[in-house]
């Protein structure tokens, strides 16, 4: 048995040839191809043992064509020539059936800002590594008289976007994520970690955090409803930000006046800054 198994993503040059051939074959005035390919695995545990353990390799090829001012979109999950012809044909067919609408032109070539988000160690992570990591957390929880539940995933992904105006960008990334809930008879704790490089995940620190939280949370007492000063831990803050993004940070929601966000209006205290940074090298996304 191999000790390491590299993620099997298509070679970048081969991916570019596939995209170029698809763009050349398109009869539309403008064509855009977005390819996302991933190879990922996830080990799930409950009651201090692994109960589900999965892996998948998949791809999405999404084609958008603009023909005579009409747009068509289709996707397929194959990187074969026949599949490329099929997805192009379907996108064209959809465009042909549409009424002529307002045309938003596709972007031309522009400078990109590459972000290093790849780890060979994560791409080559094995089921045995995930099992060992999980087993260590379960063993610690068991020794504390508690039960561990959660999921540990590792994966590699690449994304290529190209259009008939000469755009081609490629990005590849890896991610290792573990979330865990540890429960006793009368309370639980939660912790998670995420990293581009799986070697940065420290199972002992994660287990210590979640077990300590679960132990301190046994027989927690209810509080009366009322006004309190509340301290939220980082997981709660992150979840709140995620939900706020979902319901209101988008420009469309603001344009349609569905959002709590109105440009120039104060909506939080002066001590709050929230920003979006897709180039942050420390984040997985």
């Amino acid at each position: 048995m191999k000790s390491m198994e590299a993620s099997r993503l298509t070679d970048q040059a081969e991916l570019k040839r596939f995209v170029d051939r698809l763009l050349e074959a398109s009869p539309a005035q403008q064509t855009e191809v977005l390819v996302t390919e991933w190879d990922s695995a996830l080990t799930r545990f409950a009651n201090n043992g692994i109960h589900q353990n999965v892996a998948e390799r998949d791809v999405s090829v999404r084609v958008r064509v603009v023909k005579d001012g009409k747009t068509g979109v289709a996707s397929i999950n194959q990187l074969k020539e026949t599949a490329a012809q099929d997805v192009l044909r379907r996108a064209i067919a959809i465009a042909d059936l549409q009424p002529k609408g307002e045309l938003v032109p596709m972007p031309g070539p522009a400078k990109s800002h590459p972000v290093e988000a790849w780890s060979d160690a994560t791409a080559a992570a094995t089921p045995e590594q995930r099992a060992d990591f999980v087993e260590a957390i379960c063993a610690k929880a068991g020794r504390a008289g508690l039960k561990a539940f959660g999921a540990f995933s590792t994966g590699a992904e690449q994304l290529a976007i190209a259009n008939s105006l000469g755009v081609f960008h490629h990005h590849r990334s890896t991610e290792a994520t573990i979330n865990t809930v540890v429960m006793g008879e009368a309370g639980s704790g939660y912790a998670d970690r995420s990293a581009i490089d799986v070697r940065e995940l420290d199972k002992d620190s994660l287990a210590d955090e979640v077990i300590d939280k679960a132990q301190r949370n046994q027989n927690a007492q209810p509080v009366e409803p009322g006004d309190y000063e509340v301290v939220l831990e980082e997981y709660a803050v992150a979840e709140m930000l995620e939900f706020l993004s979902f319901i209101g940070f988008g420009a469309l929601a603001a344009q349609e006046e569905r959002s709590f966000m109105r440009l120039g209006e104060r909506i939080t205290g002066e001590n709050i800054d929230i920003w979006d940074d897709g180039l942050d090298p420390k984040k997985c996304n």
Partner: peptide
């Protein structure tokens, strides 16, 4: 092959 290897890894830390 991959499913078999994953199952063997699961067996290292399964409950029942």
């Amino acid at each position: 092959d991959r499913a078999i290897r994953i199952a063997r890894a699961s067996a290292r830390a399964r409950s029942t």
